[in-house]
Simulated scan of single mutants.
Amino acid sequence: MVNSLEQFSLQGHAALITGASSGIGHTLAKGLAQAGATVVVAARRAERLEALVGEIEAGGGSALAVSMDVTDKASVAAAFERAEQALGAIDIIINNAGVADPKGFLKIDDESLDFVMNTNFRGVWHVAQEGARRLVAAKRPGSIIIIGSVLGLGAHPGQTAYCASKAAVIHLTKSLSLDLMKHNIRVNAIAPGWFRTEINADFFDAPAGKAYIEQMPARRLGKVEELVGPVLLLASDAGSFVNGTVLAVDGAHSAKLV
């Protein structure tokens, strides 16, 4: 019988994480490295990536930094090519890069809409497609994980474009799981609730943000480290029969949205 804890090991796997220069992606990269994966950290801010590689290697892990703009298909392909040449097939792909431009529906212009959709939807599409094509060519199984949002499960005022983009990738997750199952590639999503990051820290430290926290079922924000375990489940053999699933990690926030 296989040791249940060994199923969570990522030894022998290579994982690419987009948007790894800060926030959730930064923490996931360190967490997967600790689980044994060789980690490819991808983003546009190269100097931050190199610092992250240094942190991972100082902790005994192995990492490679690659420059990637998820909205640019050529950039995505070049990043995968560099990673593949160095490490072989990338069999864990974590689509984490995302942006927001909070505005009410009537104030959203084409530029704002394109900004959100090009990263949050088309960027996920580009990375998943490039990674899946390479896995199929290498005849390797794999796991694709999309970082969605509870705002893809329920709506919130002033976040129309963001909500639409995250709802789109949640449905994309389910569609891809069916299309890629025959290639032994699993596709799942995490739907985080509100987590403290450098992007939202100022808001949640302000009176309005503190008041919003008090309305949450958990009465607190999530810690980004609390996302590592759920992602590890989906990336590892422990989740080998989990496919096409959207896992909310939100302190019951999405239950309140329904």
Score class of each variant (00 low, 15 high):
Ala138His: 10
Ser175Trp: 09
Thr197Met: 13
Asp179Met: 04
Arg186Val: 14
Gly131Glu: 02
Gly31Pro: 02
Pro192Val: 08
Ala20Thr: 04
Phe195Lys: 10
Ala167Asn: 07
Ala255Tyr: 08
Arg44Tyr: 02
Val124Ile: 06
Ala46Val: 13
Thr160Leu: 08
Gly59Met: 10
Asp179Val: 01
Gly54Tyr: 13
Lys73Ala: 15
Ser62Ala: 14
Val70Phe: 02
Asn118His: 10
Arg220Phe: 01
Pro230Tyr: 10
Val40His: 03
Ala164Met: 08
Ile170Val: 10
Pro207Gly: 10
Arg186Pro: 13
Thr38Lys: 04
Phe203Trp: 15
His253Thr: 02
Glu84Met: 01
Asn243Leu: 01
Arg140His: 04
Ala74Arg: 07
Leu257Glu: 00
Gly229Arg: 13
Phe121Val: 13
Cys163Glu: 03
Arg133Lys: 13
Ala63Trp: 03
Ala201Gly: 05
Ala201Pro: 08
Pro192Asp: 07
Ser62Leu: 10
Leu113Asp: 08
Ala191Ile: 03
Ile145Asp: 11
Val116Asp: 08
Glu47Met: 01
Arg44Trp: 06
Asp109Gly: 05
Leu227Glu: 07
Ala14Ile: 11
Ala128Glu: 03
Phe241Lys: 02
Ile108Gly: 11
Asn96Ser: 07
His156Leu: 06
Thr160Glu: 03
Ala97Cys: 08
His126Asp: 02
Asp109Ser: 08
Ala137Pro: 00
Ala15Glu: 14
Gly12Pro: 00
Val187Glu: 01
Ala97Leu: 08
Ala161Val: 12
Ser177Lys: 06
His171Leu: 11
Glu57Gln: 15
Val249Trp: 02
Asp179Phe: 06
Ile94Phe: 05
Met216Gly: 12
Pro192His: 06
Gly104Glu: 14
Val127His: 04
Ser149Thr: 02
Asp250Tyr: 13
Leu227Lys: 10
Phe241Pro: 05
Gln159Ile: 11
Met1Ala: 15
Val150Met: 06
Phe8Glu: 12
Pro141Gly: 05
Val53Thr: 07
Gly19Leu: 00
Gly12Met: 07
Gln215His: 06
Ala58Leu: 04
His126Leu: 13
